[in-house]
């Protein structure tokens, strides 16, 4: 991921260190603020290893739980950022490993999912699966493209509205939507063939 896309400003580290030190001393307000503020950074770490947005959410929550459990291991005399990133990265990679392991052991038997003889009746589950794949593919797009696609195609904003909402120029939006659709088409075709 490009450094520019990583949330977190330079002064976040020292402030979060102070908030965590206060949290360790029992300040619930500081703890709540800290947890809220670090979510985007954790999400960025998780998005590095996981594509589907629901999976990223799972990892974010798992990381938050872990941070809660091991918060006594943070030493306020040391920088906070490396501590946070080490915990987040570790849990995120663990989740990835678990997923790969379970997927390797799963046996795919398409017919066993077909509960009804009528092919039309099975459509719903297939549709859901396709939606999941599509969501994963969208989540994997570069940020600019994803934003453009979401605003223009999914929320059906006009180009001008989308431009105001995202800060991208109208021309940039057009290019990004085009690129996003092209990337999705290539990706989904790959998933079907592979």
């Amino acid at each position: 991921m490009a450094p520019a896309e990583t949330p977190g400003r330079r002064d976040d580290g020292p402030r979060w260190a102070r908030l965590m030190a206060a949290a360790q001393d029992g300040s619930q307000a500081d703890y709540a603020r800290l947890l809220k503020e670090i979510v985007p950074l954790i999400r960025a770490v998780a998005a590095h290893h996981h594509r589907a947005s629901d999976r990223v959410d799972d990892v974010v929550q798992d990381v938050l739980l872990t941070i809660h459990r091991v918060r006594h291991t943070y030493d306020p005399a040391r920088p906070f950022m490396p501590w946070l990133i080490a915990v987040a990265r570790r849990r995120s990679i663990d989740a990835l490993r678990r997923r790969i392991r379970t997927e390797a052991m799963e046996v795919r038997d398409e017919t066993s999912y077909e509960t009804f003889a009528d092919p039309l009746a099975n459509r719903e589950t297939e549709g859901r699966e396709a939606a999941e794949i599509l969501a994963g593919a969208i989540a994997a797009l570069p940020r600019g493209q994803r934003e453009a696609l979401e605003l223009v195609k999914l929320r059906e904003m006009s180009l001008l509205e989308a431009s105001a909402a995202s800060g991208q120029s109208v021309g940039g939006l057009k290019v990004n939507v085009h690129r996003a659709i092209k990337a999705l088409r290539a990706r989904l075709k790959g998933e079907k063939d592979g």
Binding site: V39, V60, Q61, L64, T73
Partner: peptide, 18 residues
Amino acid sequence: TDDLIKALVADRAIDGAS
């Protein structure tokens, strides 16, 4: 995630020692 954060903040027990 917001609900989780609320729950975590409410849980003041610290699992580990110095």
